[in-house]
Design a protein around this nucleic acid. Structure first.
Lengths: 202, 202
DNA sequence: TAAATTAGCGTACAGTTGTAAGCTGAGTTG
DNA sequence: CAACTCAGCTTACAACTGTACGCTAATTTA
């Protein structure tokens, strides 16, 4: 194995180790460099060959999480295009995502309100992508004016993420209930913004 | 000063110290017993005369925060009763609260998605009070059926808390903008649930 | 007033942390 | 092949952690 390959492999095992530790209810700021190194099977000081410090690793993890989130969006779009209600499909896709990638979503959720301003900003940016994407869709498909669509999209994303937080530690049955619940709430918002627009079109 | 008085005073200074440390971007799990003791001006080991461990202190802090939240609700109700739109008054009151008690709100926000299951549960319970209270109001005042009102109340509380998170680190101008934004979003929801009810009354 | 209680302190210890310094051996390059 | 590079290692250290143990001095109780 070439030197570069080996390095990439070790780097990945550090990232995997961090996600592993994150899995058992911990924040980025609550896991230590030595723990990560231990989990990754390297000496503590070898960590520095790959990351300047834990913060740099943290930002890398947030980036990876953001990547997963964007893949989620693409998947949702594809499923919507091939038929099915927008709200139902979106929520279902989202719930499948947080079930399959619970550690990724947990990371985003925790660090969104977490200790590090840098992480908070990074997560907010990823969520903003999500919101932008949704508002574009609303504008194009539902023909709702831009400023209303933006507010609607933001509300919807916030509700879905909030429901996702509840679903994170729920079993399949509770998850289904949470899904139905948030779907109804999203319909309220959609109805509401439509009603608002028809009442005061500008 | 009696022994009991002195003890209460020291206990309070421990609580104050913890809130102080919480003020500078930290989680409960990220502040150490020794730091709290230092800030409170007592010896590390004296801490144990008042709390079994940091977790017990943490739950105490969450309780205090919940108390503040309930006072906020009472204040909002009073202001609504003495005239003014429900949404406007509620949001304004809430924003004033998180400005004046930013550390309290930050605690709730962080620990709501935090590391400790016990804290998460405690915070969720406090937020649930909030939601229950609001849905009662919606049922009584707006005559909306129970199950719809519950969904509406939950959506609203989630949006307001989510907006509060953004407002936490915003200046006065940005805060005002966030307020206006969330007020509109709350109106969407209200319109939506009303429309839903009139469309499918049961 | 004598005895009992107890809030707070000082000392101590084992465990963990981040990271500095320098070595080694294997892959890379000329 | 010789020189170089560099990922990963071992050792080391100072800082910090939670908390056990026992003392003191002042209040409370009998």
């Amino acid at each position: 194995m070439s030197r570069q390959e080996q390095k990439l492999k070790t780097r990945q095992s550090i990232i995997d180790a961090a996600f592993q530790l994150l899995n058992e209810n911990r924040t980025l700021s609550a896991i230590s460099l030595r723990e990560v190194a231990r989990e990754a099977g390297i000496a503590p000081t070898s960590f520095y060959r790959h990351f300047k410090d834990m913060d740099e690793l943290g930002l890398t993890l947030v980036d990876e999480a953001g990547l997963a989130l964007r893949q989620l969006m693409r998947q949702a779009r594809r499923r919507i295009a091939s038929g099915g209600g927008v709200i139902d499909t979106s929520v279902d896709t989202f719930m499948e995502f947080i079930t399959a990638n619970s550690n990724v979503f947990r990371l985003l959720l925790r660090e969104h309100t977490g200790t590090s301003a840098a992480y908070r900003l990074a997560v907010s940016r990823e969520i903003q992508h999500f919101t932008d994407e949704l508002s574009d869709y609303i504008i194009e498909q539902l023909k709702i004016p831009h400023d209303i669509a933006v507010l609607q999209a933001e509300s919807m994303v916030r509700l879905v993420f909030s429901a996702g937080a509840d679903a994170l530690e729920a079993d399949a049955i509770l998850k289904a209930a949470i899904s139905e619940r948030v779907k109804k709430q999203l319909r309220f918002i959609q109805l509401g913004s439509l009603a608002f627009w028809q009442k005061w079109p500008d």
